[in-house]
């Protein structure tokens, strides 16, 4: 029997736009003794930047239903997306209040679900760093990755900090440590902590401002001469990979920074092939990075 079991929350973007991240995560998990238990019928988290911006009550009722699914599994939630994490962790927090819970349960009446407040939400970075631990991860590594990586942590992994487990907002090193554990180097770059620009409904409705933020980060990463960008949020990932093509078109630039989600990089270090990690499915070619580490798609 596996040691670490979680309710696996997929969200929207991973299963429906970036399934390579789902595939990579499903492959690396068993090596770490993680069992991903499906949350059957889970919906959009719903997205904090959009749905919560439009109607907080609807947002809270839908997130309550998702949390209820995890409670029915009897397992805490593991989430890969910072947006979903932000919604689920805020949902868990808001629904601790008995009055709020009663009000939301009234709305849920008729769906067959009720929320009790028995589970919590953990981001992949938290599960890896705190539940699995660096030593256990290190044991699974058979092929160290020697590359210069720009780490992008993303906003909602850390903020609002009062309902996060980290105790810090700036100088957060967990993801850097997880990347360096694989043999890579985390390279410092200007505006490392800055938002990718995708959240808050910007990527859908104010694309020029959204892309300008990403552009600034691409420029800084290029100056820092990195081999790739590593992220722990699929929405940031989408912004950096798909958005990089859009930035190049909009701004006449030619940024070529390969973008990897952490489990994809981890998978390579565990001996999976680039194809198994879905690296042939990216919008910006990952080939230069693979060449650097002595692999090819």
């Amino acid at each position: 029997m596996t040691k670490h079991r979680y309710s696996f929350f997929l969200g929207c973007v991973i299963p429906n736009r970036l399934p390579q991240i789902e595939a990579a995560t499903r492959l690396v998990a068993p090596k770490l003794d993680i069992e991903l238990v499906e949350m059957k019928g889970a919906s959009c988290c719903p997205a904090p930047g959009v749905i919560k911006s439009f109607d907080k009550d609807t947002w809270l009722a839908i997130v309550a239903r998702n949390i209820a699914l995890a409670e029915e599994n009897g397992l805490d939630i593991l989430v890969l997306c910072n947006g979903c994490y932000g919604t689920l962790i805020a949902g868990v927090h808001d629904l601790k209040d008995p009055e709020t819970r009663a009000r939301v349960n009234k709305i849920l009446k008729g769906t067959g679900h009720q929320i009790k407040g028995t589970v919590t939400t953990k981001h992949l970075a938290e599960v890896l760093y705190m539940d699995i631990g660096m030593e256990a991860i290190e044991e699974t590594i058979i092929r160290p990755i020697e590359a210069r990586c720009a780490i992008h942590v993303g906003c909602h992994l850390l903020k609002p900090s009062d309902i996060r487990p980290w105790g810090v907002v700036e100088d957060f090193t967990v993801v850097d440590e997880l990347v360096e554990l694989l043999g890579a180097t985390s390279v410092d770059y200007k505006l490392k902590d800055m938002c990718c620009g995708a959240g808050g409904g910007l990527r859908s409705a104010v694309l020029d401002v959204s892309l300008d933020m990403a552009r600034e980060k691409f420029e800084a990463m290029t100056q820092a001469k990195v081999d790739c960008l590593v992220n722990v949020c699929n929405f940031c990932h989408l912004q950096f990979d798909v958005g990089q093509v859009q930035v190049n078109k909009e701004f006449g630039t030619d940024y070529q920074i390969p973008v990897l989600y952490y489990t994809q990089l981890l998978g390579l270090a565990q001996g999976f092939t680039p194809k198994e990690m879905g690296l042939d499915r990216h919008y910006i070619s990952v080939e230069p990075f693979l060449e650097k580490i002595g692999m090819s798609v």
Binding site: L10, N16, E22, M39, K40, G41, D55, T111, H113
Partner: peptide, 22 residues
Amino acid sequence: LPPTVHSYPKAVKEIQHIIKKT
């Protein structure tokens, strides 16, 4: 199809139920 609302038509109805109520 992922094991989300996409695989469970009943789950979509549940979301619509919530949305009508709010």
